[in-house]
Amino acid sequence: METITYKIYSSVSQLPHSWDVVALENAFLQTSYLKVLEESAPTNMQCFYIGIFENQNLIGAALAQYLDLNKLESFGERDKCLKTYTRNLVFKNFASHALFLGNNMITGQNAYIFNKEIDFEKIGRILRQCAHEITAYFKKKHIKIHIVSFKDFYKNCAVELKKTAFSDTYEFNTQPNMIFELKPEWSANDDYVAALSKKYRDQYKRAHKKSEGIQTRELFLGDIILMESRIYELYYHVAKNAPFNTFFLAKNHFSCFKKHCCDRFILIGYFLDNHLVGFHTLLLNGETLETYFLGYDEQIQKEKMLYLNMLYNMIQFGIENQFKKIIFGRTALEIKSSVGAEPVMMSGFIYHNNKLIDTYFDKIFPRLEPTLVWQQRHPFK
Score class of each variant (00 low, 15 high):
95 A>W: 09
64 A>I: 10
30 Q>C: 09
354 N>P: 12
119 D>C: 15
41 A>C: 10
23 A>C: 11
258 K>P: 06
230 R>Y: 06
129 Q>E: 14
195 A>E: 09
359 T>S: 12
317 F>Q: 05
67 L>D: 08
244 F>A: 04
308 L>F: 02
113 I>L: 14
360 Y>G: 03
359 T>H: 14
283 L>P: 04
314 M>R: 14
225 I>H: 06
343 P>A: 03
338 S>N: 00
326 I>V: 11
140 K>G: 00
249 L>H: 13
164 T>K: 10
209 K>C: 07
370 P>N: 03
103 N>Y: 00
294 L>K: 01
48 F>M: 02
352 H>T: 07
30 Q>Y: 04
342 E>T: 11
331 T>M: 03
268 I>D: 03
40 S>I: 11
357 I>K: 06
310 M>R: 01
318 G>M: 05
185 E>C: 09
120 F>L: 15
47 C>Y: 13
132 H>C: 05
106 I>D: 02
205 K>Q: 14
55 N>F: 00
288 T>F: 02
231 I>M: 07
109 Q>V: 10
81 C>S: 15
368 L>S: 11
311 L>D: 01
358 D>S: 12
41 A>E: 13
28 F>W: 08
42 P>N: 02
364 I>W: 06
165 A>H: 09
204 Y>T: 08
373 V>E: 13
350 I>P: 03
279 F>M: 04
141 K>V: 07
313 N>P: 00
223 D>H: 03
251 K>R: 14
146 H>C: 09
25 E>V: 02
69 L>C: 08
110 N>L: 12
131 A>K: 08
310 M>I: 04
305 M>T: 00
243 P>T: 08
232 Y>L: 03
143 I>L: 12
324 K>Q: 15
83 K>H: 13
21 V>Q: 14
331 T>Q: 08
116 K>F: 05
320 E>R: 01
79 D>C: 02
189 N>E: 13
91 F>G: 06
146 H>Q: 06
136 A>E: 14
239 A>R: 04
234 L>K: 01
101 L>D: 04
26 N>M: 12
172 F>R: 10
72 L>T: 11
163 K>N: 06
91 F>R: 11
215 Q>E: 15
109 Q>I: 05
109 Q>G: 15
146 H>N: 15
371 T>F: 04
259 K>M: 08
9 Y>D: 07
109 Q>E: 15
80 K>M: 11
59 I>L: 09
359 T>W: 12
138 F>W: 13
217 R>H: 15
310 M>G: 00
31 T>N: 11
196 L>P: 01
147 I>P: 03
21 V>A: 11
279 F>P: 03
320 E>I: 00
348 G>N: 05
245 N>A: 00
183 K>I: 01
85 Y>D: 14
71 K>T: 06
239 A>Q: 04
298 E>M: 04
259 K>L: 09
330 R>I: 14
328 F>P: 04
18 S>A: 13
71 K>E: 13
171 E>P: 04
136 A>R: 09
273 D>C: 08
231 I>W: 02
165 A>K: 09
337 S>N: 05
176 P>H: 01
185 E>G: 00
7 K>Y: 10
239 A>C: 05
